[in-house]
Nucleic acid binder design. Structure first.
Lengths: 150, 150
DNA sequence: TTTTTTGCAAATACTTTGCATAACG
DNA sequence: CGTTATGCAAAGTATTTGCAAAAAA
């Protein structure tokens, strides 16, 4: 049987890696950071900041919500966790043809990417077992040419 | 040359369809709705609610931001435009293995979908011309089995 | 001891809501 | 004319920030 990310052995391994990564980057290994990282690493529920806060508060009643926000952001920058979807404000698209989006993480700009003639947008998978799919959304995150000209 | 969505002829066609759709659904065709829809339909910039508001205000100085929000939501429900990415609050994922997400639009739950053995997650396209891709994000939106049991 | 991080409180950003008036059909 | 949609103002979430005190190295 394969180990899943939520098993204790794996979580411990990732906590160790987290410490290594902190030292590499000159960030301090605080109990708050450890617990916040642990909360996300051992959950498979894609928790919100609020949910992480509630979880961490069980073992650390004095932790504050703003520390959770700050820490989640730095863990993301450190490459230790991901944000699901786009955050911040909503953006709208009047073009309903199937296409992808490139989102620049620096300036926030959203660019359309239309599939080439011979390309197909990747589809379902075991998704049918989860529910009825109404829409597929593919985005690429990165830095656009305006923000980092070659 | 192909027509793009931002060309006047096409925008007019879509405005006509918008009216038809309103009538079908028993919604009134107000000037606000028309202008808000037009603003999104003729833009390729994936505008935020604020951006739509500023645009519409040029021709309609009295329009209010809350009408823009309300209208964008109903246009989305009517299937006339899409929201880019996930809105509302941020969710975090500690699992960095490549996988997709199924997001239930009813309860907000996020489910992981791991690609099968022989499946590959669809990749780039003309995206390289836009910038450097750091991350690929594939989400499916729909109604999960908990919310709509068969 | 020095510098980073935290918790607090307050501010900001984004979005939603109640209600009286205006506008559509 | 009857009902729906709008604008206003205010409330509600989600997230961020300044600063003094606490904690890590």
């Amino acid at each position: 049987m394969l180990l899943t990310l939520t098993e204790p052995a794996d979580v411990q391994m990732r906590l160790d890696y987290f410490e290594t990564r902190c030292k590499e980057l000159g960030l301090r290994v605080t109990r708050q950071r450890q617990e916040i990282f642990r909360a996300v690493a051992q959950s498979d529920k894609h928790p919100s900041a609020e949910a992480v806060f509630l979880q961490v508060r069980e073992s650390m009643p004095n932790v504050s919500l703003d520390t959770v926000y700050r820490t989640l952001s730095s863990l993301e920058e450190m490459g230790l966790l991901m944000r699901v979807g786009l955050s911040s404000k909503a953006r709208f698209d009047g073009d309903l043809r199937p296409h992808c989006h490139f989102v620049c993480t620096q300036c926030g700009e959203v660019y359309d990417i239309f599939p080439q003639e011979n390309e197909q947008i990747a589809c379902p998978l075991p998704a049918r077992n989860i529910g009825e799919i109404k829409q597929i959304n593919i985005q690429f995150k990165g830095i656009c040419k305006n923000c980092r000209p070659q």
